[in-house]
């Protein structure tokens, strides 16, 4: 369980997050949605101790993120930032292998190799495993980074806009893979999404943020209503239901 209590964040004069209270239970996919600048990425990076906690408390599986040793947290939670740029010339397999670093501090056991192979397979990278990252397309690179986070083998996965650069096919593949590892391996996935319909199709729960506050929180069918969507995104859109799945028509 991720427990966020009374968390605020400010950079200089700008208040990024206002008194956030949120509990994310173990298991399942929680999607964070909201307009640009709502504070989704900041919240994610606070949970992942990438920046210091200024006010409030955050714990993951009852480990406070600000006092638990970083290397212990790295075995509980993995994060993929949206602006991850790999400038190193590493092969896909090597990059994914570094996901195992928190476990053996660099020494790879046969178990580690098995997990690396499984991660490559899970994200359809086996054929690309000997390619240098820089020779991949944006979408392939994105999958390699997700595979690296998955190889970390943590119960919690925080993904910041992992669908960036992915075409429809791979966006769907990635979301289905995430759904599968949430269902089969009991992973808890918190994912920032811009495509609200991906959230509708794959998430168990949607948390909507705006201007540093949580403004709505619920299952896709509870939350995806024209009224709530207008409150979050600031314009009128139609919502239709197909096969029990709300589809937001936000294009016109």
């Amino acid at each position: 369980m991720i427990r966020i209590e009374d968390v605020s964040l400010r950079h200089g004069q700008t208040q990024i997050l206002h008194d956030i209270w949120l509990t994310i239970p173990k298991g399942g996919i929680t999607a964070l949605v909201g307009p640009n600048g709502a504070g989704k990425s900041s919240l994610l990076s606070l949970i992942a101790r990438l920046q210091p906690l200024q006010a409030g408390r955050i714990s993951v599986d009852s480990f406070p993120v600000d006092t638990t040793p970083s290397r212990d947290l790295a075995r509980i939670l993995a994060i993929l930032r949206q602006d991850s740029i790999v400038t190193s010339r590493l092969r896909v397999r090597e990059l994914v292998g570094f996901g195992r670093f928190p476990h053996g501090r660099g020494r790879l056991t046969p178990d580690d190799y098995a997990i690396i192979d499984q991660s490559l397979q899970q994200f359809d990278l086996t054929d690309l495993s000997d390619r240098f990252i820089e020779t991949l397309s944006g979408g392939q690179r994105q999958r390699a980074l997700v595979a690296m986070a998955f190889a970390q083998g943590t119960d919690y996965l925080l993904l910041d806009e992992p669908l960036n650069n992915l075409d429809m096919f791979f966006a769907r593949e990635l979301m289905r893979s995430l759904r599968r590892i949430a269902d089969e391996n009991g992973k808890t996935i918190v994912i920032v999404l811009h495509d609200i319909n991906q959230a509708s199709a794959h998430a168990d729960r949607i948390v909507a943020m705006k201007s540093g506050r949580i403004v709505a929180d619920g299952t896709p069918s509870d939350l995806l209503t024209p009224k709530t969507l207008q409150a979050v995104f600031g314009f009128q859109m139609r919502v239709e239901t197909f096969d029990d799945m709300p589809v937001v028509l936000h294009f016109r």
């Binding site: 990076s45 990438l50 040793p69 970083s70 075995r75 994060i79 570094f98």
Partner: peptide, 9 residues
């Protein structure tokens, strides 16, 4: 960020 995420000081 990647370093901290992997538990590196």
């Amino acid at each position: 960020d990647a370093s901290i995420g992997l538990g590196l000081d």
